[in-house]
């Protein structure tokens, strides 16, 4: 009974001064930090197990992309300059957060590019996170959004479905660019722009004449459609690898910070406990001596 009253007295005192937390407060705080640490630590482990698979997918996707782009390099393909350019930006990100600045940096890069193109841009957002971010500032530019990406390592089927939807609207765009987070190393990524070419641009490539193509088979058109799907696939794979590694780092930092907080709060908890015990002893002793 007495002890109860004692702590209550301490608590009321702390409410007034605001710098002396009670034992119970510290205990709940400590417990919640410990739980958070457990969660972040698990997320870190999950991310690091996924990382190797994601990196492998990214590497093969890059080889695929290089094989796909070789022809544009040799044909010196460039976007067609038109009097009334219509731009389309495809922004590749994902649905899930808790991975550092990965979504905001790509949204920032997109906004910058939109400003550069005098706002004469349509945007396709792949992934919920980037859609909400762009919806805040550039809602008028957003024409199409996809979600449900980034849960697992991307497959070509995902990319084909997305590109099919985009292709339904992309025939009127003179300039198409893909934004994605390029995986640089385990600790860094870089928002990158990849240009895409439509059939017209491929036909007008300066060095295309050195290639033998079948005129009747609509090769440029099929090639541009195929490349759109390929580019989306490789961007998804690269973006996914950067996201997973960013998440691992973010969760690693969070766990470390939680560890620091746990040590600080444990010390504070023990100190406060001792102080409370001392106070109670003082109370008891003074009470006992007054009876003498």
């Amino acid at each position: 009974m007495f002890t109860r009253l004692g702590t209550n007295a301490v608590r009321t005192a702390s409410r007034q001064t605001r710098n002396y937390a009670t034992l119970r407060d510290i205990e709940t705080r400590l417990k919640s930090i410990k739980n958070i640490e457990k969660i972040t630590n698990t997320m870190k482990i999950v991310a690091s197990t996924r990382l190797s698979k994601a990196e492998r997918a990214k590497n093969t996707a890059r080889v695929y992309d290089a094989a796909d782009r070789e022809v544009y390099k040799h044909a010196e393909t460039a976007a067609v300059e038109s009097e009334q350019p219509k731009n389309l930006l495809i922004v590749v990100s994902s649905d899930k957060g808790l991975c550092g600045s990965i979504h905001s940096s790509i949204a920032k890069a997109t906004r910058k590019r939109i400003a550069e193109l005098n706002n004469n841009v349509d945007v396709v957002a792949i992934g919920d996170k980037v859609r909400t971010q762009l919806n805040r500032t550039n809602a008028d530019n957003l024409v199409l959004a996809f979600n449900g990406v980034g849960k697992e390592t991307p497959t070509f089927t995902d990319a084909a479905l997305i590109s099919d939807e985009i292709y339904q609207l992309s025939d009127k765009y003179s300039n198409v660019e893909i934004f994605y987070n390029k995986f640089v190393s385990g600790v860094s990524f870089e928002p990158t722009i990849k240009p895409l070419f439509d059939a017209e641009a491929i036909e007008q490539s300066p060095a295309l004449s050195q290639y033998e193509t079948d005129q009747d088979a609509k090769v440029p058109e099929t090639l541009s459609e195929f490349s759109l799907a390929n580019a989306i696939y490789t961007s998804l794979a690269d973006g996914y690898a950067s996201e997973v590694s960013a998440r691992r780092n973010a969760m690693d930092n969070a766990s470390k910070n939680a560890g620091d907080m746990i040590t600080r709060y444990s010390i504070l908890y023990n100190r406060t406990r001792q102080a409370v015990i001392t106070n109670e002893l003082v109370d008891i002793i003074t009470g006992a001596s007054s009876l003498d």
Binding site: T60, V63, A66, D214, Y233
Partner: peptide, 25 residues
């Protein structure tokens, strides 16, 4: 020859003698 798939790389700039491919024509 570079023979690349989205999910795997079968040949990466490897030297080969001949490749027969099924073209559309």
């Amino acid at each position: 020859l570079s023979l690349a798939l989205p999910h795997a790389t079968l040949f990466s700039s490897e030297q080969v003698t001949q490749v027969n491919v099924p073209g559309a024509n």
